[in-house]
Structures are given as C-alpha cells and as structure tokens.
Amino acid sequence: MKCSRCKATACVSLPSHHSGFCPDCFKLFFTRQVETAVRREKMFTRDERILVALSGGKDSLALMLELSSQGYDVTGLHIDLGIPDSSEKARAKVEAFCASRGLRLEVFEMAKWGLPIPDVKRFSTRPVCAVCGKLKRHHFNRIALAGGYDALATGHNLDDEVARLFANTLRWDVGYLSDQGPALPAREGFVRKVKPLFRLSEFETANYAFLQGIEIHSDPCPYASGASFTGHKELWGELEHRSPGQKFQFYQGFLQRGRRAFAALDKAEGDVLAPCTACGSPTNAGVCSICRIRESIREKKLEAGEA
C-alpha cells in the first residue's frame, strides 16, 4: 500500500478515510485532526493554561505530546490510585515520559488523601470502576480549578466517545446525553472540559504513540475485568469493519442533531446544582456523592478496626 499523500510505502491503513499514510504523513494527519478538533470546538487558545489528565496509557500521553508539539501551555496531572502492582507502574511511565520530554507534571496521591482505590474495592458496595471514575473526575476538576487552569483536557478518543454515547443511549440517560460532547464549557464549580482526540480512533492514537516512541502503560487495571465499555467497543469495531466511517457518523450526527434535544429536556426537568455543604463541589444533594462515599468507607473501616 502506498501513502495517499506522498506515495512512499504506507505504514498505517485507514479504511474510514479511504487512505493510507507513511510515518511522516500519518503524524501530519494526526496533527491536523487535533488542530481541527481544537479549532471547530473552540477548545482553547495558546494563551490559556491547559491541565492534561495523564493515566499513562497511549491516548493521554499522545495527547500531551501533541498539544505540547503544537505550542500549547500544558501541564500533566496524574492520579496515583494506590493499587498494588499497578499504580506504581503507571506512575513510573508518566513520570519518565514527562521527564524525558521536559513536560510539567503534577501527581495527586489517593492514599495521601485518605482513600486509595483498594479501600473502595473492599468497603464500598458500589462497583469499584464507577466510584474510581467519579473520584478521578472530582479531583481532575478540583485540581484544575484550584490551579487556575483554563481547561482540563482528557485523552478520550472516538472509540471512547462512541462507546459512552452508545451506553447512554441504551439507557436513554437524559442527563448524560444532554452534555456529552468534545467540549463542555466552564460553569459554576466546573472547569471547561475538552477532548481534543475525539476525531481520532483508538487505532490511530495507538499508531501515533508507536511512531512517536511513547512508552505506554498498557497493563489492564486489575479491578476492571468485564467493563461494559470494552464489549461496546467490540460491537462497534465490527460495525466499523462492515461500514467504515460509521462510528464518526454516529457521533457527529448526535452532536449536530441529537444533543440539543436532550439538553432542552434536561434543562426543563434536570437537577439544580448547589455547592456541597461539606466540600463545596457542585451537587444536586446537600452533601455530594464524593463526601458521602468517603464518609461511608471511613465508617466501614472503623467498624473493621482499620481506621
């Protein structure tokens, strides 16, 4: 296969774009997809400070490198979840990546905050992945606001967004469908959230990470077996194989024609947010779910004589 742009030997074949690219032209394709995403969704400018959530996986590290290469003012944020035999490896990859490329990094430790994820797994009755995700989102937002950042960028790619949209649609979850998208403006208590990789598939970010020589943390989380999003991605992978480009059409169609209807419905019927009486984070209850989870686990640890 020849590169669609320069006719050298291609290294990446992209059926959804009817194209193949050599290493240099693929990197250019990747850069242009990110540029288009940032420009069309008005995500941020080069005068703004961006906090990039770094898990150590291919997507977040690829995002950090690409935004840095494009001249944006980026700082990485890694949350050390405190999971034995896993979190230290992820953290080491992130720290080595940032150090080798001269990129700023902040690390937040869940254990120092008093709630490592193994405690969530042991003492919470809720699914550990759901609670872990909630805690990470809370801290990303809190740290971005406290640090005066203009935007929080995450490495969610097209496959992540399609799998999430699919899951939300299966449940007709009006709240989540009302604000799913690649750019969520700032509002009281929430920093602006952006997903500059939303036009790129997981396959494309994996190729980019490989070509850029990024050492990634690819071990699956030991607590994440059977996550439903993985199954949804497999279903969509099959659909995409039969009809290349369908993932992007599904997602773009929702953004252009579906989301407004859910946003209007949520505005009419949705919850009103107010600051949590304990921590000040926005919530539709008096005390936010983060504080309730933390208190519940603290009580259970006390009962177990482990506090």
């Binding site: 296969m1 193949g20 291919k58 997981e202 690819s218 996550a227 992978g237």
Partner: peptide, 24 residues
C-alpha cells in the same frame, strides 16, 4: 516498522501485535 495488512511476512520474522483497545 509498522505494517499495513497487505504486507508480506517471511519465515523467521518476529512480529509485534499490540491490541489497541484499552481494557480499563
């Protein structure tokens, strides 16, 4: 070197297959 699906493989090749779906 990354390979597209049409590339030939030969006896003795050592090939990396890296799955792209993040598993959590």
């Amino acid at each position: 070197e990354l390979l597209t699906p049409d590339r030939k493989l030969s006896h003795g090749d050592v090939v990396l297959v890296r799955k792209v779906t993040s598993a959590g």
